[in-house]
């Protein structure tokens, strides 16, 4: 029993997409540009050459936020989407009927359709691969060149993530929606 979350030192991100590839290779995510569990968000730069706003060009790594109050879980008619014993939002492929309510409900656009398993899929913190083998990092964290990610148990006060969240300021995405994401962006 744990309560897994992830802190992102997003200022380190160089938008290299190593995390996306590692995730696909680890979890057998389908090929295709629209099939991904994680991604890096980039905004169009502000200004006109040569006067450009450097600050407007940030890279925001993102994925399923593993909300404590997950809208996708609330709308799922078959309980395919559920919280596992570690607070990870998971999808049961046997129960998913591809109604796509969850895709519409997710405020973070975290879900996509896996055409092979006919499931609405998304990040599961490598629960059925790395964590199932007893490993303690996700594929995206392990591979990241600039070490953006810290994965761990939010309930363990001695975990690295708990320590970093105590020591550093951070924010969540769309906090006003009350979803209580478990991804934390470090300032």
């Amino acid at each position: 029993m744990a309560r897994y979350g992830m802190a992102l030192d997003y200022k380190n991100c160089i938008n290299c997409k190593a995390c996306e590839v590692a995730c696909k290779e680890e979890n057998g995510v389908l090929l295709g540009a629209d099939k991904h569990r994680i991604w890096v968000g980039v905004k169009e730069i502000e200004g006109e050459f040569p006067l450009l706003s450097i600050a407007s060009n940030t890279f925001m790594p993102s994925q399923c936020q593993h909300c404590e109050h997950a809208p996708c879980q609330e709308v799922c008619p078959t309980h395919a989407t559920h919280y596992d014993e570690n607070g990870v939002v998971r999808v049961d492929p046997d129960k998913c009927i591809l109604c796509s309510y969850c895709m519409n409900a997710c405020p973070y656009d975290a879900r996509y359709v896996d055409d092979r398993t006919m499931t609405v899929d998304k990040c599961n913190f490598c629960s059925d691969t790395r964590l199932a083998r007893g490993e303690t990092t996700t594929a995206c964290q392990a591979t990241c060149p600039t070490k953006v990610r810290i994965f761990g148990d939010l309930d363990d006060p001695n975990s690295e993530i708990s320590q970093v969240l105590r020591d550093r300021e951070h924010f969540s995405l769309k906090p006003h929606l009350g979803t209580k994401p478990k991804l934390f962006y470090l300032i």
């Binding site: 290299c16 190593a18 590839v21 591979t143």
Partner: peptide
């Protein structure tokens, strides 16, 4: 302790 996207795609 890192592999970039290309390193991951070596497979």
């Amino acid at each position: 302790n890192m592999l970039c996207p290309r390193g991951n795609a070596g497979i």
